[in-house]
Amino acid sequence: MSESIVIGMDAADLPTPVLVVNAGVLRRNIAEMGAHAAALGVALRPHWKTTKSAEVARLQLNAGSVGHTAATVAELAALAGGVSPSVFLAYPPVGRFRVGTVIEASRTAKVIVGADSVDAVRDLSDAAAAAGVVIPVRLDIDTGLHRTGVVPEVAVAAARAVAILPGLHLDGVWTHEGQVQAAGTDPVERHRRGVRAGEVLVAVAEAIRADGHEVRSVSVGSTPGVRSAPTVPGVTEARPGTYALGDENQVHIGTIAPEDVAVSVHSRVISTQPADWAIIDAGIKAMSSDGSMHGDGRIGTVISDGGGVVITGHEEHGFLQGADDPRVGEVVRIRPNHACGVVNMHHRIVVVEDDVVTGLWSVLARH
């Protein structure tokens, strides 16, 4: 596909399905989040799993980000390889391949790791001591999501155990307040959950300090919670990711305006034979199968003229329902449920301005 896409091409002529990002909207989102973090006086460390793009990472750094957050060691290695000066691996460094990548990446960038137990960092401790390096560690705190993280009641004991391990340095605490998104379309409840997550994390940090340990970083992270959790005094860092591109789920719950979504998938109608739907060339391999906050199982929402919903998908076929007189060959633009998932399905981002192709950016560290 890449050979048939050239700079200056009209977006209407792109081979489909194709991942497209509006450069103007992307730049605006990055600038606005940089200004928001600066106004709060917190460091901004965007989660890079959303874009997996070196070009976007550099735009974020230019807008004031202190570094980036990674979900995988593949992302860590890509970022540490000359893209970002500081990377927080927000995932337990369990397994030889993760430990080895952390040590190697620490030679070219400042690397911080997150974990919720001594067992999760014991091998890293041994490897760091053997390599003669010191790796900062942030203790993962469960503030309500119930995925990973120690409960606040045992956080001091966990921090004490991590702090004595050789080759490691207790840097601070962190959380992913994913429970904010689970509040759905209720803005009051979303704000309450975000503030509560920030308050819990700050209280844990203060308790660890009272136990005699330095806590430099108090880090929260989510796009739905970025207007609430980082406003709590004592929070030092925010790690939103989806904000850069936006997606349908964020539009639906009201955390991102429709005009602030930079990403879409362009697809063509390939069949109108069934009476109940049209078939497009964007199935789950183009859209991903990430769930919809609408609760109706859709894998995407059409935002171009004619409308409709991609109600489900096979690998290479999407089922478009509710469109106004779809025609074979017609191009539809689809807003994906989840930006992070859909980017990972593609090897390249086509960047457009005024519906003209201005860039081709590689998607790195796919898995």
Results as ranks from 00 to 15, higher is better:
1 M>L: 06
3 E>G: 02
5 I>D: 12
5 I>R: 04
9 M>Y: 02
15 P>A: 02
19 L>Y: 00
20 V>K: 08
23 A>M: 12
29 N>I: 10
29 N>H: 05
34 G>Q: 05
42 V>C: 12
48 W>F: 14
58 R>V: 05
61 L>G: 12
70 A>T: 07
74 A>Y: 13
77 A>T: 14
84 S>R: 15
85 P>I: 13
89 L>Q: 06
90 A>L: 10
92 P>M: 10
95 G>A: 08
106 S>I: 11
110 K>I: 06
113 V>C: 10
115 A>R: 04
115 A>N: 07
119 D>T: 13
124 L>M: 13
132 G>A: 07
134 V>K: 14
138 R>F: 06
148 T>Q: 05
149 G>D: 01
154 V>D: 02
161 A>E: 09
161 A>G: 04
166 P>N: 13
168 L>I: 06
174 W>K: 08
181 Q>S: 03
184 G>Y: 06
188 V>G: 03
204 V>Q: 05
207 A>P: 02
209 R>M: 08
209 R>E: 15
212 G>K: 11
218 V>W: 07
225 G>K: 14
232 V>W: 14
236 T>E: 09
238 A>Y: 11
246 G>L: 08
248 E>G: 00
256 I>K: 13
257 A>E: 15
263 V>Q: 15
263 V>W: 15
271 S>W: 04
275 A>V: 08
275 A>C: 01
280 I>Y: 01
296 D>W: 02
297 G>E: 04
299 I>S: 07
302 V>A: 03
303 I>W: 01
309 V>W: 07
311 I>Y: 14
318 G>I: 09
330 E>M: 03
331 V>S: 06
333 R>G: 00
336 P>M: 10
337 N>D: 05
344 N>M: 06
345 M>I: 01
350 V>T: 10
350 V>W: 03
351 V>E: 11
355 D>H: 11
357 V>L: 02
364 L>S: 03
364 L>R: 03
